[in-house]
Amino acid sequence: MTTSPQDGALLTVEKVHTYYGSIEALKGITIEVHEGEIVTLIGANGAGKSTMLRSINGLNHPRRGSIVFRGKDITREPPHDVVRLGISQSPEGRKLFPRMSVLENLEMGAFQRRDRSELRSDLERVYALFPRLSERKQQRAGTLSGGEQQMVAIGRALMAHPKLLLLDEPSMGLAPIFVERVFETIVEINQQGTTILLVEQNAMMALDVASRGYVLETGTVALADDAKALLRNEQVRKTYLGETD
């Protein structure tokens, strides 16, 4: 297994095969994320985007292939150790703890952290990104609107102080005005120094903020290129951006 980071890759996923029961959801996928980037995975439903994230975060270990993060092989690492190494995630469908308050949800994001002193400033950072959450910190997460829940999900992931932030469909089910807000926030988080791997159905918006992108099709990488190039790619425009000649 590789143990040294190649040309500054923060995360290297190599020829990964991941199964759901007997179904092969990922058929030898290779992707790379470099420090400071926003990388996006786009593709249709069932292309394997979320499975890719579940392979990285340890919820669904690959059967073959390797995942190396900051020079360490994390292919078989359990999820609670993956987050300690610096990868956190806002999962698909948000998956908040509905009967905990907003504040408790945010604190859950920092479950693995020992540096109590820095938590305060991270909480301030989340409240600065999402002033709405500071107003609602005592409210139960289950009673928030969809947009607010998405803020909590992203805020919670940030509370782990990750080196790499995984975002799974952050715009799903949100009103257009919130979608804009979410993507602005993604850029802001990235500019503050967090590398981001973004899974999205909204390919246009995702490619707009990303530096590079991978197009997944039924468990394989169909295309990999700079985001700008993908935006111009005719096949991508037709299939994912809904363009008709």
Partner: peptide
């Protein structure tokens, strides 16, 4: 409480 409400989310927050 986290595991009882959302086990997968609890795991990726770092709960064993």
């Amino acid at each position: 409480r986290a595991v009882s409400q959302e086990p997968d989310a609890a795991a990726i927050m770092g709960v064993n």
